[in-house]
Design a protein around this nucleic acid. Structure first.
Lengths: 329, 329
DNA sequence: CTGAAAGCGCTAACAC
DNA sequence: GTGTTAGCGCTTTCAG
């Protein structure tokens, strides 16, 4: 039973109630060091009875550890933080942190000022960092002191383990599907140039096209729907005989469909459209969007976990992306 | 210039560098108490030069404050945490916390065990709480000790200031639009029964119907698209002459449209459909979804801010919801 | 195996 | 105005 006290119990209270010293109580609770079964039991009972919860601030202070995990998103402006993708990452990280008495902070890392990362590294309140949309310059700016407590969702480096979706595999699956259903002039709307991890799906595209002896038709995108709309027009103007468009994100794909529609092009009748991410609304759009899955929550959970556990981590972990065939392609 | 040190600077270092005592440095940095302009300048310079960042753990410890803001979401199962809406709230809260050296934690509050809230209240690591999807029993379970550092997104109480969208106003705007465009048999798919704040739009619906002398046609929903699909069939079966459906969320509305389509009903030709929330993809669906805006980010920001600032807060703050007319109604 | 004691970095009385 | 001092709650040597 939890006894409701006016003032939350401290370790001192627990120790007194258990008839042991603070040190012993601490050892039992932190699970570090030795303690007799008897002492252990009494401490556990006292903890339970008083509803004791360790004060994470005190703990962090004495251990020299931080109290929050920083999610740092690289981007040109702070607008990159206004993104459902970032929201997912932050929420997933928060779920991982909560049981440990930690919190999550959200930072924008200016793309052209990667030194900002050092600030974060020096903040004694930060126990670890999860990088999002990382670039090579940012990775190069990672100070030694961050070793073992930083991970990246996207590309990684020798010092920074990476966690990401296998966009190469997902893209290949989508493109094979397009090819298998008879499409032969397949254009792709890519992600932003500066985002290296977006390059993997472009490489997959080039390779599939080469193997199939098909022409390469690339249009630069930025993951947004707005850009997708414009990109659709661009594709139509440059290569009027295009019969399929693969977009690097679902939002872009939806924009592409809207753009196509406006020009009187039928989807998937005239042009098939496929996206990437399988966002919740992909299956609700009309036509339902063919896409590839992207387990953002699981990826972010793994990255946050790796940072908190400070456990040896493989340099790169890829999460499979599966084709989700629906109506648009 | 930030001088890169092996060990992050402490207040002690700053004080020494500025030639003052720790207290004076503390006063200047925390902005509390007096300090001569001269001392102030020297401290500021030292902070800058050493790249000093206060240790939030130490600060929280001595002040008896927490180091994280808890976002607590009420629901039957922990699955309520898997919701883009919750993601938005958490991310917005994280942005507010970050500059203060705080983090965000995410908790599930079992709907049938509101006592869980006491646990949170006793956790000395928690500096404040933002309630999401609150119910009356949860509000009743708020302990005194939380006064002044808790806010609710949704319904509030005497002890808990609330921040929410004006769903009554938004619903009214949508319904007037439906009526103005000639719809006369308007059904509504509601939110879950246990969620009181969802009741406001139902009340608005009842009132508009009464004033217009139109029949009330209510189907219970749960904000999901899946339920929307089923609800569409239910509406069609019970009231075949329905010419408009207002859904309490965009996801539901999109589900309704899908369900309608499957039955060969044209939207908006045969039945107009309107949603609520204006999620990013509302404008990308086909037909583009008519809806009412819902500034989740601003609401969450305000709620988090209020909790952190511990500033006197009006008992209820409503954020306007505006009609966003598109193609579906 | 256990307790005493020394701090972690900071703030807030309280003297000067 | 400024410095001195006493902790906040916890972990961790170091003796017993």
């Amino acid at each position: 039973m939890t006894h409701a006290a006016a003032r939350p119990a401290t370790l001192e209270d627990v120790a007194r109630a258990a008839g042991v010293s603070r040190s012993t109580a601490s050892r039992v609770i932190a699970g570090t060091g030795f303690a007799s079964p008897d002492a252990r039991d009494r401490v556990v009972a006292a903890v339970d009875q008083l509803g004791y919860v360790p004060n994470p601030a005190a703990r962090a202070l004495v251990r020299g550890a931080g109290v929050r995990l920083a999610v740092a998103v690289t981007g040109t402006t702070s607008a990159v933080l206004d993104d459902p993708y970032v929201d997912r990452v932050v929420a997933a990280a928060a779920r991982v942190c909560t049981p440990q008495g930690l919190g999550v902070a959200l930072h924008w890392l200016p793309r052209h000022a990667p030194q900002a990362l050092r600030q974060l590294a020096f903040d004694r309140g930060v126990c670890g960092i999860v990088l999002v949309n990382t670039t090579e310059p940012v990775l190069d700016a990672v100070p030694r002191s961050l070793r073992g407590r930083i991970a990246s969702i996207g590309i990684g480096s020798a010092a920074v383990p990476s966690f990401d979706v296998d966009n190469g595999g997902g893209a290949t699956a989508v493109l094979h599907h397009l090819h298998a259903t008879g499409r032969r002039r397949i254009a792709m709307v890519t992600g932003p140039r500066w985002l290296s991890c977006a390059g993997r799906s472009v490489r997959a595209y080039r390779q599939v096209m080469r193997e199939a002896g098909l022409p390469v038709r690339l249009v630069r995108g930025d993951f947004t729907a707005t850009r997708g709309r414009a990109a659709a027009r661009e594709v139509l103007d440059r290569w009027p005989d295009t019969d399929a468009i693969f977009a690097a994100s679902d939002a872009t794909a939806l924009g592409v469909i809207a753009g196509l529609r406006r020009r009187g092009v039928r989807v998937p009748g005239d042009v098939a459209v496929a996206g990437f991410d399988d966002i919740p609304l992909a299956e609700l759009s009309t036509p339902a969007l063919t896409t590839a899955s992207h387990p953002v929550g699981r990826i972010a959970t793994a990255a946050a976990q790796a940072v908190l556990d400070r456990r040896p981590t493989p340099p790169a972990t890829f999460f499979p992306s599966a084709l989700v065939p629906r109506d648009s392609a």
